[in-house]
Every structure is written in C-alpha cells, then in structure tokens.
C-alpha cells in the first residue's frame, strides 16, 4: 500500500469534471421532472375506473419495472434510431430510458399513496357532490403527496445515481469525464474516488433529510 495519492492531476482537469457534473444535473433534472409527471399520470391511469386506461398503464409499469434500465437505454440508443425518423443523441436515449423507468417506479409510489388514503375520504367527497376527478385533485392527492414524500425523494436519489448509466453510451456526464481524465492521466484511483465522494457529498444530506422526514411522519401519522 505504498501508492502515492495525487489529486493534483484531477484538480488540473476540474473544468472537465465540472462540465460533466453540469451534464449530470441536466439529465437528472429532465428525468426527474418528466419521469415523476409521467409517473403521476400512469399512477392515475392505473387507478382509473376505465379499463382501457388501466390496462395499458399496468403493462407499461410492469414492463419498465421489470427490465434493467441499462437495457432500456441501450434499446433507445442502438435500436430506436432505426425506427425513429429523427436523430437520437446520447442524452435523448439515456433520458428516455431513465425517464420511462422512473415513471414506472414512481407510478407505483403514487398508486400506493393514493390507495393509502382512507376510503372515508372518497365517500365524504362524494357525499358533498364532488366528482371522481375533483375528489382526486382536491381531497386525495394533497393528502397522499405528503405521505409519498419520503418515497419520492428516494426515487429522486435513485434517479441521480442512475444518470451515471448515460456514460455507458458516451454521454459526457461526470463519470464519463472522469473516465476520460483517468485514461489521459493514468490516475483512475483519484479520478473515480473524486466522483464517488462527489456523489456521496451531494446525496447523503438528502438521504439524511429523508430519514428525518420518515421519522417525523411515523410519529405524526
């Protein structure tokens, strides 16, 4: 163990790493926002009274939950461009895979949250003459979202970690940049250690926050 650590060589390329981090945040933001929105729609469709909505939603959710996200990304990167009438960039392919995957997982969170609300709330809504959609929007969802907050935060953390898969199709995220730096400088130890620590430093405070949130909810509810 007489390896001499030298973080100077990584520091020299900090601009490249920074660019990578920006790209990581960019793809995360896209996937988080679109994934959760689509997830909410899928969750609602899965819970809908109409069968023609419920069934396709269930198929979508099960398919994307039960296949590896990297396979989905590869499919969108290598296979989809042949079918699609337009160019698919690495960012688009990765974002598509991660978004659809996250939508499937968050749909289950939304569904679980909605179902966790006491049926008495539905009845109370109906009793004052509200329609299904109104009850959902005004009574159920506001209560459910509060309960789902820890699970959705965890999903966000998973998505952030998942963005590194984009590097497998050469999207210039922070891991891809580290890989470049490592191959130029022959310093994989420092390069990858820095990335690992960066993820830990960014995500761990959020993880702690979810612990606090969960504990507070366990007490409050």
């Amino acid at each position: 163990m007489d390896y001499v650590w030298d973080f100077g060589s990584v520091w020299e390329y900090r601009a490249a790493l920074w660019t990578g981090l920006i790209n990581t945040v960019r793809i995360f933001a896209i996937c988080f926002v679109t994934g959760l929105s689509l997830g909410l729609m899928m969750g609602l469709a899965r819970y809908s009274v109409r069968r023609w909505l419920r069934w396709p939603a269930a198929c979508f959710i099960e398919f994307f939950r039960n296949t590896p996200v990297l396979v989905q990304i590869f499919w969108f990167y290598f296979a989809f461009p042949i079918l699609a009438p337009f160019e698919i960039s690495a960012l688009m392919a990765a974002a598509l895979g991660i978004t659809l995957n996250s939508a499937a997982f968050s749909a289950e969170i939304f569904r679980g949250g909605i179902q966790s609300i006491d049926p008495g709330q539905w009845e109370a809504g109906r009793a004052i003459g509200m329609r299904h959609r109104e009850i959902m929007a005004r009574i159920i969802l506001p209560q459910a979202v509060r309960r789902m907050l820890p699970a959705l935060t965890n999903r966000g953390i998973e998505i952030f970690k998942m963005t590194t898969l984009a590097s497998a199709i050469a999207y210039a995220d922070v891991l891809h940049q580290a890989r470049l730096i490592a191959s130029v400088n022959y310093n994989p130890i420092e390069a990858y250690t820095v990335v690992a620590i960066a993820f830990f430093v960014i995500l761990y405070p959020i993880v702690r926050a979810t612990y606090v949130l969960e504990r507070r909810m366990a007490k409050g509810d």
């Binding site: 953390i157 970690k161 963005t163 891991l175 580290a178 990858y192 690992a196 993820f199």
Partner: peptide, 11 residues
C-alpha cells in the same frame, strides 16, 4: 447506498 454502482464498478 448513496454512490452509483457504476462508479463503484469502475473504481
């Protein structure tokens, strides 16, 4: 749990 598995694998 908080670092991406791909980073761990590369490391």
């Amino acid at each position: 749990r908080t670092t991406p598995p791909l980073v761990q694998l590369f490391w």
